[in-house]
Amino acid sequence: MNIIVPIKQVPETSNVKMDTETGTMMRDGVESIINPLDLYAIEIAIQVKESHGGRVTVVTMGPPSADKALREALAMGCDDGVLISDRKFAGADTWSTAYVLVKAIEKIGAVDLIIAGERATDGDTGQVGPNIASAMDLPLATYVSRIDAVTGTSITVERMTEEGYEKLRLPLPALLTVVKEISYPRLPTLRGKQRARKTDIPTYSVADLDVVENHLGLTGSPTRVVKIETPKVTRGGKIYKVVDDHSLEEAVDGLIEFMKKKEII
C-alpha cells in the first residue's frame, strides 16, 4: 500500500501578530509547524501502513525551510519525504497548489491512497484535497472520521456530515480528507528523529515536473487577494460581576433583560 500524505507548513496561529499598519501577518519570530489538522492524516496513514504494509510518503510545497515539517513527519513514522520548492510556485492559490501537487504525486509513482487533512489552519479553505482528487479523477471521501475496512482493492470509511455520518466504500486508488476524530497523533520517537535527520529528502523544482508554466504561482492562480483587513475583535459588552446573592440576582436579571431586548426570548 503506497500512501501519500500532502501536508502544509503553517504559522503557529496562537502566536500570530498582525502589523496594524499594513494589515499583514508578522511572520518574524512566529514558529512554523505542521498544520495541526495534517497530523491526523499522518497518523492514520501510518496506522494503515502498520496493518497493511507499504510506505508513507509525505509531500509539501513551500520554501526550502518547509523541509523541517517533512522531517517532523518522518520522525513520527513516515518513510519518505518530498519537498516541492521553486520561486515560480510562490503566490499559488488552491488551484495552482493542487495542480503542482498532482504533478509531483504523479512523479513519485504508483499510489494506492492519498490522505489529506481536512484543511489548513491558516488558509482555512479545505479545497486542495478535493482539488487533487478531481484533477487525478480519484474517488473522493471528505470529512472522514473513521476507516472501517481496507482491502487490496477498496476502502470503507465513515464520513462526518451535518446530520451524522455516512458510510462509503471507495475503490482504490482513492483520496480521503480526514477530520480530527479519526485518530490521535503520536509523538515523534527518538529513533524516528535520528532516522529523519539522516533521510535524504529530494526537492522538486519546476524543471523536475511536467508542468505548464502559466499554471504556476500567481500567474496560474484564478483568485486574487484585493484587500486584507484586521477585524476589530472587541465588542465591549456590559459586564456584571457576581460577588454575593444580590449581585447574582442582578446579573441574571440583567441577562434576561438583555435577551428580551435582543429578541432572543
Partner: peptide, 21 residues
C-alpha cells in the same frame, strides 16, 4: 460538508477561481 466538497471538485476541472467560507 457537501458544498465544500463539490465546489473545489468542479473548480479544479474548469480552472475557475473559488473562495471558501
Amino acid at each position: 460538508v457537501n458544498g465544500r466538497t463539490l465546489m473545489p471538485h468542479v473548480a479544479m476541472r474548469i480552472h475557475a477561481g473559488l473562495t471558501a467560507d
